[in-house]
């Protein structure tokens, strides 16, 4: 009776469960993205972007940190190639995310990679990376990531629009410190992940490097800091493994 793709088949139920699990697990991160999206919309219109431009940027770029930085550059009168290059550098961390997730997304039908890639953000990456460690083999992983991503995307569009409207009616909204929501969200993700000494060292070294390299152009200090942090973690972990004789 049940065809593989009919709405009542067990396979369909598994996909649906994974999809909504992805959306549900992303909820706390959505809460953090709400004020960030609103402040983006509000600051966008006061930085010289049109209301339609702000909405379009959220729709086709969909990268909160890069969008935010571009507003600062637009307001500072930077030219187009500089802003595009900055966007590329700020978003290079997504290449690291893609590399991490790709291992779990091998052999999918080609049509999957386009949406999964386009919608990838910090938030969906963190949620999916955690889930993928213990996820069952099969379609659950891709549906979980898709659920997380679509939920993030829909929220970002809505919040940008609300922010644009709020910015037009409440000009002092940008002084509320709403952009700090992104920082506390990242703190809330990061702290419970620090379970080993190599990870703690990676955190401290990456953080310190980012501070020292804060004045490098185009936010390239972020990438430098990430690389130094990863190197620190790998070095300490392999040394600890060698000391305990685990590593052959």
């Amino acid at each position: 009776m049940n065809k593989p793709n009919s709405p009542t088949s067990p396979k369909h139920a598994e996909r649906q469960t994974a999809f909504f699990a992805g959306a549900r697990d992303t909820f706390p991160l959505i809460v953090g993205a709400i004020p960030f999206g609103i402040i983006f919309g509000a600051v966008a219109v006061s930085s010289g972007l049109s209301a339609g431009g702000a909405a379009a940027m959220s729709a086709v770029v969909f990268a909160g940190a890069a969008q935010f930085i571009s507003l600062g550059l637009i307001a500072a009168g930077a030219n187009l190639p500089i802003i595009v290059l900055t966007t590329l550098i700020v978003n290079l961390r997504h290449a690291l995310y893609s590399a991490t997730l790709a291992h779990h997304l091998k052999g999918l039908p080609q049509r999957w990679y386009l949406p999964l890639g386009f919608w990838l953000t910090d938030e969906s990456f963190v949620v999916a990376a955690r889930y993928f460690e213990h996820a069952p083999v099969g379609p659950a992983k891709r549906w979980y990531l898709l659920g997380s991503e679509i939920f993030m995307y829909a929220n970002w569009q809505l919040m940008t629009w609300i922010g644009v409207r709020a910015g037009q009616t409440m000009p002092d909204l940008r002084n509320w410190g709403l952009d700090f929501a992104l920082v506390v969200t990242f703190i809330g993700i990061l702290v419970p992940e620090i379970k080993s000494r190599p990870t703690l060292a990676a955190v401290l070294v990456a953080g310190s490097t980012a501070m020292l390299a804060n004045n490098l152009p185009n936010q390239s200090g972020l990438l430098l800091a990430a690389i130094v942090g990863i190197g620190t973690g790998v070095f300490l972990e392999s040394r600890a493994a060698a000391a305990s004789g685990i590593l052959a």
Partner: peptide
């Protein structure tokens, strides 16, 4: 993969530290 495991912690720290200290 051993290296990629440190991606989230390193990237998040590189965003958080300057935002709170600087």
């Amino acid at each position: 993969f051993r290296a990629l495991k440190f991606v989230p912690a390193s990237v998040l720290s590189a965003i958080i530290f300057p935002a709170v200290f600087l």
